[in-house]
Design a protein around this nucleic acid. Structure first.
Length: 859
RNA sequence: GCCGAAGUGGUGAAAUUGGCAGACACGCUGGACUCAAAAUCCAGUGGGAGAUGAUCCCGUGUGGGUUCGAGUCCCACCUUCGGCACCA
């Protein structure tokens, strides 16, 4: 194909419209890029690999929305910038087409998802091409292709071999709207991530889990060195939730195994006046007084029925039942009653706690309600010793006073007995202090006693330090249809048997009967031809697992597949993987901080441990882009504030649309989408076009004045720096500023014009390509090199020095750069207006910052 | 409650180490061109005072502080947003 050339400027193309015509320019160059294969690197031969990645979407029927344009453009700019720096850039794309979203849509339309996906994908591809993204379409992947999910299943088998996939019965999250179990990460404040109205229920079901908790410490440790957005890392730190504490064991009063608790405050053990077990704790029935069993069982039943929202509500009144048994406080040796209450969670720590009502607000509330003893063991430090805190402490006292009126009398009685009963919540001190009522530890700082107490109990075999993580294992099975079948077979004789690798893929059967019933049994359990299978081990009739795996497993390894997209002998080619991975730069939304991004890191570490990949972190650099909202609300179909990108592209062109997105504000902060600025960007591009098409050709070639040259080199330096920091909004501003300056010059300077066009090209690739040709270059500008600035030309010859008198701005003086203090002072005093401010006063002191400021202090 | 980010003109925003607050745009006002409009171009545009001007005062959420000098640093508070949260 012939290069489109500069017909726009020659004006001889019959019917060519006057002026900047984005539609025509953009479509022409897109066709050229595609025909030339400019976005398809030779992965095996490329000497200088650079892998940029955007989060692949699920191909919905609505098409891509502005949030996608915003996210993808930010990645594309990086890709184009790296290419101009001389890298071989690989920027692939694919489709996350499995999952509940696609399936629900298909159910709504009464069609099979398989039938809907191809047209949706075609529409996505059309949009993405129209936006001018530098995507390598030759290596597109779709997670629903058996050639892809074969390897998803293979990964499942690898994890199983390694003991990282296991089947377990546990209370799991059941979303009634999804009609399947979901993972902890998909539960947001007790509601389903996908259905903000659906309260998540707890169900006891046998499920497949991935042992992500085995990697908790490594997932945490590596955060210290990976180059990721801080916000994302912090979200992961919170989610992993490491607590440093101790496991303490409380002997049972009438014999039997001691009860273990986890606590972060072993220093308060002398104040543990009772114990609480989770209602589901396995020892409850053994320990309980048989006379109380009925009451206990009904409490357990009530707790079981509560959904996640209720159970997580920390404000609701404490409930509980005494089980009629006692344990011995391992420090004091005193008998303490054992209760059950649903404020203690099963599945965290040991599912049991020691209750220290004097120093834990929850235990305090519980003790107050049930009249349990409260013993102070840590003296609160004197508030008055900290001057800055008076106001704060006053507010607390006031708040406490209004809450509980009857508290003070009890406190008085208790004090007589040598025990302090707290009058209200403010008397429950949860901070550090000096030990009291704690035997040999009295008088010592609590922070110090912490270790001593653990050591003392350790000697008696009743405790030791322990680290606890909040992170739970990843529940991977889904009772739905549209996903990769879990490659496992259940045999009555052999138990669970993995599908032999050679039999992969386990193909998802075609069926029109895929509606989920919400019974906890997958739709695949209704497809006999699917689940009837001989046991691979003993050949007797067996049954396939009828669940499918979580959609997030599909996306946890897609980045490994792109370079090897066409390899049907292995999931990824080791050679290409070593060469192109880890991904150099990944950009995506922070809503995936603990979902996709955590799962992907876990899986990568596991694959690394198995020797299947040569790195344990998948993404060298990750940046979270901001969330794009509209009128202060999240963009969503249900809110009816969806923005159609195609309409903007039709009206202003892809270049203006891309650039406007980047001009909205800081890329990593996101913000409100508004189209008010797009006309400004459009006007700017129009001026650039006119400059290259009409103005520059009229100007004589010549040298730019030195100040303009300095501006140019400063702009090159700034834009390069901003590219590294993703400060796209200031790049747009800098380009506009530079263009305003260059355009005012009546000469044509080749370096300046080309530098400008090259720096414009990552943001507005089509116009830049057109301009590149109009400047007399051969396409493509993609193959140009980023301009290099001259540091000597980045500093002005003369500078404006700000002049202050007593710290107030009184004017400026212009002097040669690096002029010494005396000379500047002379210039300042020669300035009448400034001199007027010091007239008749003595200059006591002069503050001078070279090239910037002079501040005269008078007496 | 814990952890973190942010608060700047009418609007989106900018501002190396503390050193001329408001770059770049949008919008608005006035002007040029036009029969007229659109488009384009030029000028102005934080608030107040000053007859206009020179000039002066105020101004980066609130209140203090450090400093010759604070949008930037410190302390306290208010508001908004994000993560975690009956996690022991």
């Amino acid at each position: 194909m012939q290069a489109p050339g500069t017909e726009g400027s020659s004006g001889d193309g019959g019917g060519a419209r006057e002026g900047y015509d984005p539609q025509r320019i953009e479509e022409r160059w897109q066709a050229y890029w595609e025909a030339q294969g400019l976005h398809t690197p030779d992965l095996a031969a490329a000497p200088n690999p650079y892998y940029t990645l955007m989060m692949f979407p699920y191909p919905s029927a609505e098409g891509l929305h502005v949030g996608h344009v915003f996210a993808f453009t930010g990645v594309d700019i990086q890709g184009r910038y790296r290419r101009l720096l001389g890298h071989d850039v690989f920027e692939p794309f694919g489709f996350d087409a499995f999952g509940i979203h696609s399936e629900n849509f298909a159910l709504k339309m009464g069609t099979h998802p398989k039938k809907l996906i191809p047209s949706n994908i075609a529409n996505f591809r059309r949009q993405l091409k129209r936006w001018g993204l530098m995507l390598d379409w030759s290596r597109e992947v779709s997670t629903t292709e058996p050639s892809y999910y074969r390897w998803t299943q293979w990964i499942f088998l690898k994890l199983y071999e390694r003991g990282l996939a296991y089947r377990g019965k546990a209370p799991v999250n059941w979303c009634p709207a999804c009609a399947t179990v979901i993972s902890d990460e998909q539960v947001i404040d007790g509601f389903c991530e996908r259905h903000p109205e659906a309260r998540v229920e707890r169900r006891d079901l046998e499920q497949w889990f991935f042992r992500i908790t085995a990697y908790a410490q490594r997932l945490l440790d590596n955060l210290s060195w990976i180059d990721w957005s801080d916000t994302t890392k912090r979200a992961q730190v919170n989610w992993i939730g490491r607590s440093d504490g101790a496991e303490l064991r409380f002997p049972v009063a009438n014999g039997g195994e001691p009860i273990a608790v986890f606590t972060t405050r072993p220093d308060t053990v002398y104040g543990a006046t009772y114990m609480v077990l989770a209602p589901e704790h396995p020892r409850v029935e053994d320990l309980a007084d048989p006379a109380r069993l009925e009451e206990i069982r009904s409490y357990r039943e009530a707790a079981r029925r509560k959904d996640t929202v209720e159970r997580m509500d920390a404000t609701r009144e404490k409930t509980g039942v005494f089980i009629g048994a006692h344990a011995l406080n391992p420090a004091t040796g005193l008998e303490v009653p054992i209760w059950i209450s649903d404020y203690v969670l099963t599945g965290y720590g040991t599912g049991a706690i020691m209750a220290v009502p004097a120093h834990d607000t929850r235990d305090h509330e519980f003790a107050r309600k049930f009249g349990l003893p409260i013993v102070e063991v840590i003296r609160r430090p004197e508030i008055s010793s900290e001057p800055g805190r008076t106001g704060h402490a006053g507010a607390v006292a006031k708040g406490g006073g209004t809450e509980e009126a009857g508290g003070s009398k009890q406190a008085g009685d208790a004090e007589n007995a040598g025990v302090l009963m707290a009058g209200d919540g403010s008397d429950c001190w949860t901070g550090e202090g000096v030990m009291a009522n704690s035997g040999p530890f009295d008088g010592r700082p609590s922070a110090e006693a912490w270790q001593g107490i653990v050591a003392m109990l350790g000697e008696k075999g009743l405790g030791e330090p322990r680290v606890q993580f909040r992170l739970r294992d990843w529940c991977i099975s889904r009772q739905r249809y549209w996903g990769p079948p879990i490659p496992m077979i259940h045999c009555d004789a052999c138990g669970i048997v993995p599908v032999p690798e050679g039999d992969l893929p386990v193909v998802l059967p075609d069926t029109d009967d895929f509606r989920p019933l919400g019974t906890g049994i997958s739709p695949l359990a209704r497809v006999e031809s699917f689940y009837h299978v001989p046991c691979p081990r003993c050949a007797s009739p067996a049954r396939r697992d009828t669940d499918v795996s979580d959609n997030f497993l599909d996306s946890a390894w897609y980045y490994l597949r792109y370079p090897s997209a066409h390899d049907d002998t292995q999931a990824w080619d080791p050679e290409l993987t070593r060469k192109w991975l880890p991904v150099n730069f990944y950009i995506g939304g922070n809503e995936h901080a603990v979902l996709h991004l955590m799962y992907t890191r876990f899986l990568c570490m596991a694959l690394y441990d198995m020797g299947l990949v040569p790195f344990e972190e998948p993404f060298r650099r990750f940046r979270a882009h901001g969330l794009l909202i509209k009128d202060g609300a999240k963009i969503s179909k249900s809110r009816g504030n969806v923005i159609d990108p195609d309409a903007y592209v039709r009206k202003h062109g892809a270049d203006a649309f891309r650039m406007n997105m980047m001009f909205l504000g800081p890329y990593e902060e996101g913000g409100d989408f508004r189209d008010a600025g797009i006309v400004g960007v459009h006007r700017f591009l129009e001026r650039v076009w006119r400059w290259c098409a009409e103005e520059l050709p009229r100007h004589p070639e010549g040298e730019l004045p030195r100040p303009v040259l300095i501006k140019l080199h400063q702009a090159i330096r700034k834009i390069g720096r901003d590219m590294e920091n993703l400060s796209y909004n200031t790049i747009v501003a800098a380009l506009m500023e530079l263009h305003n300056t260059l355009r005012a010059q009546p000469v044509r300077d080749r370096f300046a014009a080309e530098s400008f066009v090259i720096m414009l090209s990552p943001l507005a690739p089509h116009l830049a390509e057109e301009a590149w040709s109009m400047l007399g270059n051969k396409p493509s500008v993609i193959d140009a090199r980023w301009p290099v600035f001259d540091p000597a030309l980045c500093v002005e010859d003369s500078v404006e020095v700000a002049v202050q008198v007593n710290g107030k701005m009184r004017g400026t003086v212009t002097v040669a750069r690096d002029t010494a203090e005396d000379e500047v002072k002379a210039a300042v005093l020669a300035n009448e207006k400034i001199a007027a401010h010091v007239a008749g006063k003595q200059i006591r002191r002069v503050i001078f910052v070279k090239n910037r400021l002079m501040n005269l202090i008078t007496g």
